[in-house]
């Protein structure tokens, strides 16, 4: 298995090209998760704690958007950012920033939907006690987010996992330009089709490692939740 051997060699010797790709992937997906959290956690909390007309359809759509196909998210962002699109003058298409935008679109519904569920469940549980303690709306939200922090962290990890593993959205808006917008997933897709298996397999190994790491972190968050809050 010379290919696997050279793949491992690439990983273990810290091949610069491979690590540049890994680095960009992480930067893009972590940024996207950060922005998605910035939007998704408040949005999810808001939907969880307010009653308005059309709330249930909104929740159904939000839950459905958790399964938004990455290529569709990519296409939507592409249309916005392309030269003739409404934001075309910003010149973002085929840049890492465009990839961050596309993954933010992809991950926000995941974080918002999971946050909505988590905060709403906790609110049902806490409602009587907090109401009896005459807790105002602001402290209420702070309490719920803080007490749900481990579940919310799990939601962020789920979002990050989705971003790190997707290829459809970033390949459309990033263009897979060597040395500029190549990420792990887009490179794997391209190099495999070109027959350059060692790099593809090396990146595959790194990607799997990251996914396992995320799962371990999520597990750790669960355990911490049990330890701190019983």
């Amino acid at each position: 298995m010379p290919e696997n051997a050279s793949a491992l060699h690439l990983v273990l010797t810290g091949d610069p090209a491979l690590f540049a790709i890994v680095r960009l992937s992480l930067i893009v997906s972590i940024s996207a998760t950060f922005f998605a959290a910035l939007i998704g956690v408040p949005l999810g909390s808001l939907i969880a704690l307010t009653r308005f007309r059309g709330r249930e359809p909104v929740i159904v759509v939000l839950n459905a958007l958790m399964g938004l196909p990455p290529v569709v998210a990519g296409l939507a962002v592409y249309l916005m950012l392309s030269r003739s699109g409404p934001l075309g003058s910003w010149g973002l298409l085929f840049t890492p920033l465009a990839m961050v935008v596309a993954q933010t679109v992809l991950v926000t519904p995941i974080i918002a939907a999971l946050t909505r569920q988590t905060i709403e469940d906790l609110w049902l549980e806490y409602r009587d006690e907090l109401t009896a303690m005459n807790v105002g709306p602001l402290r209420r939200v702070r309490t719920l987010i803080w007490d749900a922090r481990f579940s919310l962290l799990t939601a962020l990890l789920a979002g990050f996992g989705r971003a790190a593993a997707e290829v459809g959205a970033i390949i459309i808006v990033g263009g897979n330009i060597q040395g500029f917008t190549r990420t792990m997933t887009t490179t794997i897709a391209l190099e495999t089709s070109k027959g350059n298996l060692p790099l593809a397999i090396g990146l595959g190994i790194v990607l799997i490692t990251i996914v396992v790491l995320i799962s371990a972190l999520a597990w750790g968050a669960r355990r911490a939740a049990e330890r701190f809050s019983g």
Binding site: E125, Y126, D128, E129, A132, T143, D147, A225, F228, S229, G230
Partner: peptide, 8 residues
């Protein structure tokens, strides 16, 4: 309450 809820 009859079934008090402890905060986490």
């Amino acid at each position: 309450f009859q079934h008090p809820v402890m905060l986490r």
